[in-house]
């Protein structure tokens, strides 16, 4: 058995700000082994996005424990969570992934720069990553000059350029057509298989589910079934 990258124990997330408290997650247990590609599935409001967010340190659970790469992240200060996201986690979102004023290459470099990587190394790693995703020709284009699928590839490049322990993707294919979605999923599969990137996707796109190694179904904040 490979080591566990994520371990969630009895994780709950309750939104108490509403008039009626909403239990987005209810005592969820969830483990993720290195090299896995898990798909979180369920209708909207089932808690799949919330689970993705708490794992990624974007949101804090109300109860329970989350260990990412051996670090307990519940209760971490905001700055430490920022560092966690910067160094250990890569994010790909549904849309609005890139900094609009920067070219693809600059977008990828930007995150390395936040990590304090030197200029030459930064440039080299970014170009290599764009190459490995088959999009070297996009390097100098800005997000506004790219298609949705191209933007998502650049987003993936930015997410993996730091060699994160975990790649989180929230509805990455929501704005893409079928052919583009397939290309994107091929990219992710390639990453997962050849580079051993651990991936969690939250989606209700059935196409995605065909690619993943394991599927976790959520409903009303609880894990219903787990299967592959």
């Amino acid at each position: 058995m490979a080591e566990e990258v994520v371990t969630c124990r009895r994780v709950s997330r309750t939104y108490a700000e509403e008039a009626v408290p909403v239990h987005a997650l209810c005592r969820v247990d969830f483990e993720l082994a290195a090299g896995e590609w898990v798909s979180l599935a369920g209708p909207s409001g089932s808690g799949k996005s919330t689970l993705l967010h708490v794992i990624g340190g974007l949101d804090q659970p109300t109860e329970g424990s989350i260990v990412v790469d051996g670090v307990e992240i519940t209760g971490l200060a905001a700055a430490d969570l920022s560092d966690l996201r910067l160094h250990k986690i890569g994010f790909v979102f549904q849309a609005y992934n890139l900094i609009p004023v920067l070219s693809a290459l600059e977008n990828v470099e930007f995150i390395l720069q936040l990590q304090g990587v030197g200029r030459a190394e930064r440039r080299q790693r970014s170009l290599e990553t764009l190459d490995s995703l088959g999009i070297p020709e996009l390097a100098d284009r800005r997000p506004g000059e790219m298609s949705g699928g191209q933007q998502q590839r650049v987003a993936i490049a930015r997410a993996i350029v730091t060699n994160p322990v975990l790649l989180l993707a929230d509805e990455p294919s929501a704005n893409l057509d079928t052919a583009t979605t397939e290309e994107l999923l091929d990219v992710l599969r390639n990453l997962n298989r050849s580079r051993g990137v651990t991936i969690v996707t939250a989606t209700h796109d059935p196409m995605v589910m065909g690619y993943t190694s394991r599927q976790v179904n959520l409903r009303d904040g609880r894990v219903v079934t787990t299967g592959s």
């Binding site: 990624g56 974007l58 920022s82 560092d83 996201r85 994010f91 609005y96 995150i111 936040l114 997410a159």
Partner: peptide
């Protein structure tokens, strides 16, 4: 706001 949300998500600190 959304752009800032994204920047925060990828690990940029609010002060930055």
């Amino acid at each position: 706001t959304r752009e800032f949300g994204m920047l925060l998500a990828i690990g940029m600190r609010p002060n930055a």
